[in-house]
C-alpha cells in the first residue's frame, strides 16, 4: 500500500510542486549559477544531496528535537551537510568549485531546505520524508538545468561546451550576464503559466 504513495511523494516535488516554477523558492542559486548547463546540474545535485540527507536526519530526530529550538537545530543539521558537500566538490573538481564559488556554501540559506525540513520532514517518517526531499531536489535540478541550457545556448552558442551554431554565431552576451538570468526565468514562468492556463481551460471545457 505504501509503495505508490511514496512514489507520489517523489513525483510531487518534480512536477506538481516544482520548487522553482511553482513555488518560486531558492531563487538565489537559480539565477546565480545557471550560466552554463554543467554548473546548473552540479549545483542541483549538490542541493539534492543536502536536501535528502538533512531531511532524513530531521525526520529521524523529529521526536527528540524540542519545538522551541527546532529552526536552529534544522539549520545546524543543514549547515553540517553543506560543509560536507563543499569539501567533497573541492576534492572532486577544483574547476567546478571555483565556478560555483561561495554559492555552494550558500546552499545553507536556500529557502527550499528549511521549508522542506519544517513543512514535511518534521512531520513524517524517514522514508517518505527522504523521498519527498529527493523529489524536490530533482525538481530543483530540472529547473536549474532548464534555465542553464537556455542561457548557455543563447549566451555562448554552446551546450555542454559543444559549439552549436558554428563560428559565425554572434553570442547574445546579455543572457550570461545577471539580467539574462531574470529574463530566462521569467520566460519559463510564463511557459508554465500558459501550460497551467491551457490545462484548466480544457478541464473546465470537459465539465461544461
Amino acid at each position: 500500500m505504501s509503495a505508490p504513495s511514496n512514489f507520489d511523494e517523489f513525483l510531487d516535488g518534480i512536477w506538481k510542486q516544482n520548487p522553482i516554477f511553482v513555488m518560486v523558492l531558492g531563487m538565489c542559486p537559480t539565477l546565480a549559477v545557471t550560466v552554463s548547463a554543467v554548473n546548473a546540474i552540479s549545483m542541483g545535485l549538490a542541493t539534492t544531496f543536502v536536501l535528502g540527507a538533512s531531511c532524513l536526519l530531521v525526520s529521524l530526530l523529529r521526536h527528540s528535537i524540542p519545538k522551541q529550538v527546532r529552526i536552529a537545530s534544522y539549520i545546524v543539521i543543514i549547515a553540517t551537510f553543506v560543509t560536507v558537500v563543499d569539501y567533497a566538490i573541492q576534492a572532486i573538481s577544483l574547476d567546478l568549485y571555483e565556478a560555483l564559488g561561495a554559492y555552494i556554501k550558500l546552499i545553507v540559506a536556500n529557502c527550499i531546505l528549511l521549508g522542506r525540513a519544517e513543512a514535511h520532514a518534521a512531520k513524517n517518517p524517514p522514508m517518505p520524508a527522504m523521498l519527498n526531499a529527493i523529489g524536490m531536489g530533482f525538481g530543483f535540478t530540472l529547473g536549474l538545468f532548464a534555465i542553464g541550457c537556455v542561457r548557455e545556448i543563447l549566451g555562448a552558442g554552446k551546450l555542454f561546451d559543444i559549439s552549436l551554431f558554428g563560428p559565425h554565431f554572434q553570442p547574445w552576451v546579455v543572457m550570461v550576464l545577471p539580467p539574462g538570468g531574470f529574463f530566462v526565468l521569467a520566460g519559463w514562468l510564463i511557459v508554465f503559466a500558459a501550460f497551467d492556463h491551457y490545462k484548466t481551460k480544457r478541464t473546465l471545457g470537459v465539465q461544461a
Binding site: 518560486v24 546579455v174 550576464l177 545577471p178 539580467p179 539574462g180 538570468g181 531574470f182 529574463f183 526565468l185 521569467a186 514562468l189 510564463i190 503559466a193 500558459a194 492556463h197
Partner: peptide, 22 residues
C-alpha cells in the same frame, strides 16, 4: 496580461532593474 501576472512580472521587473544597474 493574465499569463504574466504574479511572479513572472516581478522577475521581468527585476531583470530590467538589473539591466539598468549594469
Amino acid at each position: 496580461p493574465t499569463l504574466v501576472q504574479g511572479a513572472a512580472i516581478s522577475v521581468i521587473l527585476g531583470g530590467l532593474l538589473s539591466l539598468s544597474f549594469m
